[in-house]
Nucleic acid binder design. Structure first.
Lengths: 167, 167
DNA sequence: GAAAGATTGTTGTTGACGACAACAATTGCC
DNA sequence: GGCAATTGTTGTCGTCAACAACAATCTTTC
């Protein structure tokens, strides 16, 4: 049913395709037709927009969305292992290694060798990391207001409710 | 206001952070706190889920979301230039080159040298591409039903309405 | 009508990111 | 004590966005 708009022209599409009947130099009025109504497409475009705004809004402190999520989880749950953080955020532990390397180099996070399980590291924010995170959160809240301005306050709330199952 | 859940513990967070007070071997009940209420995080997680389902549902025909969007746009607007397609879908023309290379190798799309503008290529589906696309659309509709089953029919509809501005 | 500037497709590089595989150190199981 | 599983780490591979450079071609401008 997404193809309804094409149903007629599909019977003999090469009639127009033969030569340059419609090369269309105007790129803005291209019909999406079947693409509209696809949740994945809309979500992808929205996600791109929202990440770009986040990166831009937190640009002055050079924090990307993934880094922010890591800092937030560690800040809320000090002493967590890398495995636990990775599992919670749905990122691979291999990936988390590099993330923590850079965050540790910036003195925002420290890895402390756990005494209960000497394989694992207990993750903590540094004092500097604590104060930095509060600033990041202030900027993130500003970003959140941009989202509200873009799609509306109620729509944002409803969106969060719809997607709450994905935590 | 997204940080409200942390507002109390933020005053003296290092009280708990001091040593291994809460190493927490259970990874599933980790509090996200401040992360909940961030639209970007929810959208990212949802987008990952929805893409994985799309890839899996269209796995038998080996078509990924971006490829599907390209085929759909070309199918609905035969004769479009690469530049127009790229601009419409928000992907770079450099990226589109590789996408079209693979689609052309699979005989789904053909580039025809435009006679009006000899720099550009007019994009068309092959006959094989036309019939293939109808099958892809059927599978995509099935994927869309998975989304409905996941978040609910009305929620999906509302989601599309909220995000319609991102086309 | 020719020079200057813009556009189209192409190639290449960079960096973020997810998926996977291998490894050493350590723990837990039996 | 020995064997399987887990944790952090390193490395590779493939996807994808962002840029920069380039040749061919159009468009503008004088």
């Amino acid at each position: 049913m997404t193809a309804t708009a094409r149903a007629d022209s599909r019977q003999s599409p090469r009639k127009r395709a033969g030569n340059g009947a419609a090369p269309r130099d105007v790129a803005d009025d291209v019909g999406l037709d079947a693409l509209v109504g696809h949740a994945g497409y809309a979500v992808r475009r929205f996600q791109i927009w929202i990440f770009q705004d986040f990166i831009k809004t937190l640009g002055e402190v050079d924090i990307r969305p993934t880094q922010y999520s890591v800092l937030t989880v560690i800040g809320a749950n000090p002493g967590l292992s890398q495995m636990a953080v990775a599992k919670r955020l749905g990122i691979e532990r291999a990936r988390l290694v590099h993330l923590l390397d850079s965050l540790e180099k910036r003195k925002l996070v420290k890895r402390i060798k756990s005494k209960e399980d000497r394989r694992s590291h207990a993750l903590h924010l540094t004092a500097q990391g604590e104060t930095a995170l509060t600033k990041f959160k202030r900027l993130a809240a500003e970003h959140e207001r941009h989202v509200e301005a873009k799609i509306g306050k109620e729509n944002r709330a409803h969106l969060l409710r719809i997607l709450s199952g994905f935590t």
